[in-house]
Design a protein around this nucleic acid. Structure first.
Lengths: 188, 188
DNA sequence: GCATACATGTAAATGGTTACATGATTGG
DNA sequence: CCAATCATGTAACCATTTACATGTATGC
């Protein structure tokens, strides 16, 4: 009756966060931002390993507010559309910290390239070589991007953790490039 | 009335395959198998980079039959439950080949470990170190598994393509281990 | 005159997961 | 006697994506 018609995921409060919720809380942790702001910041930071769609950002934000993990504030603008600014709450910080403590399950890793390669015998060899080349180009681009970000990085104490993720990306890109070169040789 | 109540995704026929459909067709390409068989084969082969849930295998198989890409045959058994064996059709082989030709989009890569690490400042440092250690252990296990598979591998011409995927895994595992060792040092 | 940046949302489809449900046979 | 293997499926849930929808201001 009164209101407990238990829809989908009413609480979230005591539940553990989804990765996207956590990512947004993490970004909100260093200042009030709009969905639009968050989207841009995602692209230049966590987007390399966690990239929610724009529509999903706008879907998650109100959920955070409902759960008391963030607060919304409307800002009227004259020459721009009005915007909603979100600010993390103390509960939000606690939820983020709790999520950070949860062990990360071994990620099985989805890799469509490897899937195609595995069945390569049933397809066109030239196409397979091209797939590998494309992946190598992607890896070279990734490496270039990361080196540029690295060069611009502050290297302050707050940069400590993000630096770990950049290094991961570089190691990954190098491994990919080495593998692709070898694979191209194998298929030549 | 008659049956055309147009449900979700009636055709599939001319559509490009999903990765899971392709994976199952690829496995069916070398012989008639049941859902159960496929599940086991997935675990020991493509499971390293594409791992559908059991329930999804059973959901996809009938779809393949509806689209004319596979045929089903029921086998009565006395001492075991009856089983459904699936066999790939010519159309199925064509669909697989077509899917193999489609370029692979750059995979943005979801990595929850990196997400946690990126926001590591908001959590407990010891927990972060433990996350990295766990990932290193996973990588070492992966490497051991792959080396064993490599040792048992046939190295026949049909093994050419699968060999590419094993090598990828080894390069990846090594990169992960190197990174983790470095990261553990950074956080010590 | 046109593209881009600013700004926020909804709707529909879907690929996929976990949990539920059942039950015989074989081997230790 | 108990666990594992064989064997198949349904139901509920859900995170996420793509497409739809709208409108102003700025800079080229």
């Amino acid at each position: 009756m009164s209101s407990d018609n238990s829809p989908i995921r009413t609480s979230l409060a005591q539940t553990t966060l989804t990765s996207t919720e956590a990512a947004l809380l993490g970004l909100l942790a260093d200042g009030e931002q709009s969905g639009y702001d968050l989207k841009r910041r995602v692209e230049r930071s966590v987007g390399y390993f966690w990239a929610p769609a724009r529509s999903q950002i706008y879907a998650v934000l109100p959920r955070l507010v409902d759960a008391g993990l963030a607060r919304r504030r409307q800002v009227r603008q004259s020459s721009r559309p009005d915007k909603q600014l979100y600010r993390i709450t103390q509960d939000g910080r606690a939820a983020l910290a709790a999520w950070l403590d949860v062990p990360v399950a071994a990620e099985p890793g989805h890799n469509v390239l490897l899937l195609k390669l595995f069945f390569g015998d049933h397809g066109d060899r030239a196409a397979m070589v091209e797939h590998v080349r494309a992946r190598r180009r992607d890896a070279e681009q990734l490496k270039a991007d990361l080196l540029e970000i690295e060069a611009r990085a502050s290297h302050t104490p707050e940069d400590r953790f993000p630096a770990l993720t950049r290094r991961y990306g570089l190691e990954y890109a190098d491994a990919l490039i080495r593998w692709a070169e070898w694979a191209e040789g194998q298929l030549a």
